[in-house]
Structure formats: structure tokens, C-alpha cells
Nucleic acid binder design. Structure first.
Length: 408
RNA sequence: GGAGGGGUUCCCGAGUUGGCCAAAGGGGGCAGACUGUAAAUCUGCUGGCUAUGCCUUCACAGGUUCGAAUCCUGUCCCCUCCA
């Protein structure tokens, strides 16, 4: 069980790999530098990236060296894989800013240092490429016929694919070559949508350097229905506490589908596999224990133990007795606003629970709003200081969304 | 550059003999019931508001008309075929 490859396989990360056996041996024998690319298209990593971060952690633990590549150069082109539309192009400044946020977040999970792990922006070499040289050196190794048969371009061939995007594969392949030359990086990993791009790099290194390089892809984190996980109606689940509070983060995992629990425990926590299997095999209401463990462990990894405990306590308190907990989302409002009273619809909006008064009105009419566990019957209700206890008022929307108003 | 087709509410997508269109249907989402903070199922809702009425929406800007998503003119954008 000491081989990381086996660990990764057992936990269910691996989708496919080039030369499985060779790669396994390589990981057994030597310290391998490997890379995973990240597109800096947002200012924070989200849950979808986290699985890749987990892999880097596993690999680093096993003594290998992760190289996180920030696609500063490639982001300026946009990866067409799996997309139906052309991506928005980002400005250089945005990309740089995002790259900084990424690095900060990576440091929470991976130890950086010359020998430990690196983070590199591929803009370093991509931006100064000379077009003609690139074509002569790299372009000649790619067959358009072959590329067109690649899965990642198929959907785009129907809808239209610009030449700019068509080049993405070459750029990513070139990244791998460059990393091989500079850091002796022999392995590229990525989501399964990256398979063709990774293969491109592996082949390029073989042709240009005559050396062996390897590729490995992970399963994309999807729900049992095949949807991408980590997306909610209100957007992605971010690793940044500012964008997704630890409480919400915890709740996301707590509310996960029964069928996804075991998979997530294996992929997103470091719990031993025996325990993962044990938890995953719980039946009926019992499986809630597994969900609690999952939520706690993942929150702990991402936000630290303290936040995880807070989130867990808040959740338990709310869902078992309805009393308040420590870290539920809240809004602070001036006491003076409540001397004359404020109507419920406005209050809901202030708390961010509804986006319009009409929406609030509907919610109340349908019986979806509660104040301290009492259903609100009338949408003309006026809230005053007297409704508060200890300067706090708990509003609940639906079954699970809690929000507290605090007087200041 | 030439020929043709099209841009509708969160998304897909009806609607173009002008009024009955805040706009069918589906998806998604939200809420209710049932439950285990799960899934499935059933029900309701899904532009805004100082709300039985009023206001703003059908690419954009004008025009015709008592009245336009629907007709006319111009502009922008997208797609397909030809070069």
C-alpha cells in the first residue's frame, strides 16, 4: 500500500493513465516532479479544484514534488475542452491578481519550496514565444488530422472553434515540454477533460526529447446524477471563506446525496479507507453520521479545525433544537431601525434571503418563512425590538437556510 | 465580399393574420407535504412595485397605429452556404 499510485487508485481518483505499470514503477523508484495546471479564471479556487489539490497532497506526502502551474499564458487563449462556447478573455491584470489568490490558497495545503513544491506561471515562457519559431519547433509535431479526432474538439466542431482555441492544445503540450526541460517534470495530471491535452504533451516530449513522460487523469467530481459537483444555484462552492462561509461550506457536504457520500469521503478526506467503507455502508438514517463526518473532515481540511467545529456546532444546534449557534450567517442592523419597526419583506431583503419583495411575499404566502420557529403568516408583519431576544433574531427560510439578525 | 436564416423572460424554446402576451411548454430554481438537514414522488410559485391596480421587459434606435414581441426603416451581433 505504500505506492501512491495504488493509494490514488484505491481512493478512486484515477480515471486513466498512460503506461500504467511503468508509471507505477517510476513512482515507486524515484522522487517524481509532476504538474497540474490551473486556469486562473476566478479569484478563488473552488471545490472542483480541491480534488486536484488533494492529489497533490497525497503525492507530496509520498515524497514527490508537485508543480502547480498557473495558466497565466493559456488563460489568455482559453481552453475549449468540454466548453460549448468560447470563453471570455481575461485581462492580464485580472489573471495576475487571480494567480496571487491561488498561490495563497495552495499554501494552505501544500508546502512550497525549491525541493518541496513549486508554483509557476506559464506566462513566463508562453508570452515571449516567437510565432514562427514555435511553428517550426512545436507545430510540426502536431497533426491536424489527429487533433480533429480528439474528443475535446468534437463538440466544438459542430458549434465552431476558433483558431485561437485550437492552439490551446499546443500550448499546453509545450508547457509540459518546458517543465520537463526546466524541472525534469515527468508527469502531468489533470481532470479527465484534459486527457487529450495531456497526451499531446506526453507525445511531444517523446518526439522532441526522446524521453518518457506520463499522463494521468482523475475523475471529475460529479454527483451521482453526473452533474458537476460543487455548483449550487447561487454559484460555485469556493474555498475562500469570504466567498463561501465555513458554515455554508459545511452544510454543502452535510446535505450531499446518500449515493455520493462514500465517494466523497475517499476523495476529499484522508480518512483510512476501512473507515470510509464502513461509513459508506451505513444504511437509512444512519448514513447521516457519515455525512457529518464528511462535512466535518472536509471543512477541517479547508478552513481549519476551529471553523469546522464551529460549523458543526452551529448546525447541530440549529437542526436539533432551533436554538442559535455560533457561526451561522448573520446581518448586523442598527437598533434604531427597529424602534418604529421594519416590515418583514424589507428585512428579508436586508438579510439577503430574498432578492425582491415579491419573492419575499411569495415565500411568506407559501409558508416558507419562520421567525424563531414560528411560521410567518402575514407578509405585512412589522418586526420591532420586542421580537428580538438578546438583540438577536433568527430567521429561517425553508428547511435549511438560517440567518440571524443582530442588533448593534 | 455575395446569398440565406436568426436574436424572446435564469437556460432551452413557442409565439410574427397587430389586441385575449408579463408572454405556451420544458429545464433549472424556490417553497409546501412526505422524510433522515438524503433520494424519489406529489402540490404551488418563478419580472418589479407604495398591488385586485400600476410600471418595466421580447438585440438596439426610431416609425406606423387607439394599440406592436408581432408591421416598416436603420444599426449592432450570431449562424449556415458560397468566395
Amino acid at each position: 500500500m505504500s505506492n501512491v499510485y495504488d493509494v490514488l487508485a484505491e481512493r478512486g481518483y484515477i480515471e486513466q493513465a498512460t503506461h500504467e505499470e511503468e508509471l507505477r514503477e517510476l513512482l515507486e523508484k524515484e522522487k517524481v516532479s509532476f504538474y497540474i495546471g490551473f486556469d486562473p479564471t476566478a479569484d478563488s479556487l473552488h471545490v472542483g479544484h480541491f480534488i486536484q489539490v488533494m492529489v497533490m497532497m497525497h503525492m507530496q506526502k509520498a515524497g514527490h514534488r508537485p508543480i502547480a502551474i498557473i495558466g497565466g499564458g493559456t488563460a489568455m487563449v482559453g481552453d475549449p475542452s468540454g466548453k460549448t462556447d468560447m470563453r471570455k478573455m481575461l485581462t492580464k491584470e485580472q489573471i495576475e491578481q487571480n494567480a496571487r489568490s491561488f498561490k495563497e490558497q495552495f499554501s494552505r495545503f501544500i508546502e512550497f519550496g525549491e525541493d518541496k513544491a513549486l508554483m509557476i506561471n506559464n506566462a513566463d515562457w508562453l508570452l515571449e514565444l516567437n510565432y514562427v519559431d514555435f511553428l517550426r519547433e512545436i507545430g510540426r509535431h502536431f497533426s491536424v488530422n489527429r487533433m480533429l479526432t480528439a474528443e475535446c474538439f468534437k463538440t466544438r466542431l459542430e458549434k465552431g472553434l476558433s483558431f485561437l482555441e485550437f492552439n490551446y492544445m499546443l500550448m499546453q503540450s509545450y508547457d509540459f515540454l518546458e517543465l520537463y526541460r526546466r524541472y525534469n517534470c515527468k508527469l502531468q495530471m489533470g481532470g479527465s477533460d484534459q486527457w487529450s491535452n495531456i497526451l499531446g504533451g506526453v507525445e511531444l516530449i517523446r518526439r522532441v526529447e526522446g524521453a518518457s513522460a506520463y499522463g494521468l487523469t482523475f475523475k471529475l467530481l460529479t454527483t451521482s446524477e453526473g452533474k458537476k459537483m460543487g455548483k449550487t444555484e447561487s454559484g460555485a462552492i469556493w474555498l475562500d471563506a469570504e466567498k463561501t462561509s465555513p458554515y455554508e461550506f459545511y452544510q454543502y457536504w452535510r446535505n450531499i446525496d446518500d449515493k455520493d457520500v462514500e465517494k466523497c469521503l475517499a476523495l476529499l478526506t484522508f480518512l483510512p479507507m476501512e473507515e470510509v467503507r464502513k461509513l459508506g455502508s451505513l444504511e437509512g438514517a444512519e448514513i447521516n453520521k457519515a455525512k457529518e463526518t464528511l462535512a466535518f473532515e472536509v471543512t477541517k481540511l479547508v478552513h481549519g479545525e476551529k471553523e469546522a467545529v464551529n460549523a458543526q456546532q452551529a448546525a447541530k444546534a440549529l437542526f436539533s433544537s432551533g436554538s442559535e449557534g455560533g457561526s451561522i450567517p448573520f446581518t448586523e442592523m442598527a437598533r434604531s431601525q427597529f424602534t418604529t419597526g421594519i416590515d418583514i419583506l424589507t428585512l428579508l431583503q436586508e438579510a439577503g434571503l430574498t432578492s425582491s419583495k415579491s419573492e419575499g411575499r411569495r415565500l411568506v404566502q407559501q409558508g416558507g418563512i419562520y421567525l424563531d420557529e414560528n411560521r410567518v403568516e402575514d407578509f405585512n408583519l412589522i418586526i420591532t425590538e420586542r421580537d428580538f431576544e438578546d438583540g438577536k433574531l433568527m430567521i429561517r427560510k425553508g428547511k435549511k437556510v438560517y440567518h440571524q439578525i443582530r442588533l448593534i
